[in-house]
Design a binder for these strands. Sequence first.
DNA 1: AACGCTCGAAC
RNA 2: CUUGUUCGAGCGUU
Length: 517
Amino acid sequence: MAQPSNLSGPRILSTEQDLRDLLDSLYETTQAALKEGIKPCFKGLLEYMKAEVTILTAIHNIKSNKGSETPGSDGETMREHILEKDYAGIIARVQAGLTHYVPLPIRRKYIPKPEKMEKRPLGIPTIIDRIIQECIRMILEPIMEAQFFKHSYGFRPMRDAPMALERTKRVVHQTGYHWIVEGDIAKLFDTVHHAKLGRFLYGMGVRDQRVLMIIKAMVKTGIVNETPVNLLGTQQGGILSPLLANVYLHQMDYWVTREWENKKTRTIFSQSASRTTVLKKSSRLKPAYLVRYADDWVLIVPSKQQAEKWKQRIAKQIQSVLHLTLSEEKTIITNVREKPIHFLGCEFKVVKGKSRTGYITRSRPDRTRLQAKIKELHRKVNHLKRCGSKEQLMREIYTFNAVIRGIIQYYQGTTWVNIALRKYAHNLRTKAMRILEKYGGIWLPAHQTKNLPSVHADYTEKVPAILVKDMYIGVTSLSFCRWKKTDLKRPKETPHTAEGRAIYREEEQEATTGTSR
DNA sequence: AACGCTCGAAC
RNA sequence: CUUGUUCGAGCGUU
């Protein structure tokens, strides 16, 4: 690697456009540095974070968070203590915080993990500290985004879990590999090592010591009634924490993929380097494709032996470099031609079928998780009983329908979505009808209802409906779903370049206009 | 275009 | 007095 160079010149930030341009340029200079094999190196970052426009944008970004009325340890809430106050005073407070950062202790709250006895420890910062974290996140994100592994999908803009699943499917389909290491990193947020994190940030271009000190102070923030200083881990509930988790695991991405997936690009980047070493290495390459979603990942490899080997290698590496542990019982090696893997709430396997490899991929909602959701839906149908009036019932139907649509929309990318969901539709429907009967409910073909027209227009199946002000309002069905192709990420798509945003908008257009395809 | 609200999913 | 990041669906307001 060539010498690092300071890539960020001083810059005045006054308008929102200035800020937008700054974020774009942070992304672009980082990417340009990478292409030339130079380490990115940013020094004057704190000034950008302290700019008035940054702080106002930060407040704007997080003001409508669900928890913005949930106070931290100082009792402050967004509306009462920030939005309704004189904004010059608030800006001064944030700027002071960014100058001499003394974060207030975080509030601890234990919440149950879904379907588990185990509890998840939340760390809730005060509102003012959340604003400060958002100021930092905004500036750091483009620098990190330009460097992250392209098949890391968790906590990242313009990416989602269905894309991670789609990537996994395509790798299996295109390579014909069917051995998969399903990886599980134990308690990622709680075990992030502070000094290592600082080094990784530095290595990725955050060379403003003041910013590194603020982040250090932030992760070390004490916990009310527990500890005056936190020695390990990053707050689950901190605005910056997801980005920090990705920075931390970027080390793993880099290490796992440099041997194979990223090999080609890397050789292009360092053409001056000896080609013979590259070629020699390639003769004993270990093919492996990583797909990561936060602390959850899969590695697709050609054989069982390779799977075992990689599992040991990764376990050893993340232990020594990251002080992280693979949970031994949850990290599984699976032949997807024999049994499914479980990844991101879905099951996924390959079965014999007509394709180049002789196999095709099948996916469906994870059985046990789906059953839990169905149970929850039944509970919610019963809840419809409690409505006093027809109008109230109508509102309850709307929210119930939103729940159903939400479930459907997530699983739409799985090939068996309809088969998996429709099994449960009948019972829910009849249960709903029993309740609607008291309000004059009738069975009506879905396309004759007035609600959810974009969905109901396509279905003639009968649903329970009630008449409210001349309009039939129907309870939607879990069976109103069909498989929908998931588009993969295009490499240039990012929120941090004008071009990347344009591609994103283009895709949105296609998705809304081209539904007839 | 922008904002607001309801709801879902992953971690 | 259940936080956070990200993604998505639906509805509404000027």
